[in-house]
Amino acid sequence: MSLLLEITELAAGYGGVSVLDGISIRVDSAETVGVIGANGAGKTTLLKSIMGFATVQGGGVAMDGADLHTRPVHDRARLGIAYVPEGARVFGELTVAENLEVGGYTTKSRAVLQERLDVVLDLFPVLRQRLSYKGNTLSGGQRQMLAVGRGLMAGASLLLLDEPSLGLAPLIVDELFAKLASIRELGTTILFVEQNAAKAFELADRVYVMSAGRIHLEGTPAQLMEDPSVAALYLGGESVD
């Protein structure tokens, strides 16, 4: 397996405020990596620094060996990183079809776009029925699916997902994670952060456990489930919050 994304000793935050305190993560091609942790652990900031929305205060992020440090956000997208933010953030005033078209903004070939559109619509048939509806008329689950579909339209080599389960009903979460599993089968590399540890363990090849801006543990789901501290904190009957 070849190294796709490498984060080394990353310190980041917003303005002068520091959130991440020396984080190192690696994601290989075709791997699915999860990051779990409680609210405020810095999971969202991690993805934002990869995408270029947070202030990097130290360390670095490299994609395919290229240092991302000085690159503007749109360049990172063009390097093959697709970002599905917390709460999906679909373009509310645009139709579902237009949202998907914007997802493939950097791709010139019509034929390639049509191919990807077919893949996305086969994956999420519900979007096919809603193509001419505006983004802000969709339900929470549909928005999340549209956001993932928008990410896939870019033909990205790395898909970043921020809390895909957030605010969704359990049944919808199950459906969404089943879809993500099929995306994984397509060979797309995924890095996702998630509070729902049980779901994360189902989907991921490897998981990082994060708290207070640091990585505390790393391993396969099977390894981590053996770990008593993980079991108590994230998988036990007690709520994290």
């Binding site: 956000v73 953030r89 914007v102 903004y105």
Partner: peptide
């Protein structure tokens, strides 16, 4: 509609 997200799609 969303300046940051638009940048994020390239």
């Amino acid at each position: 509609a969303d300046r940051d997200m638009a940048q994020a799609v390239g």
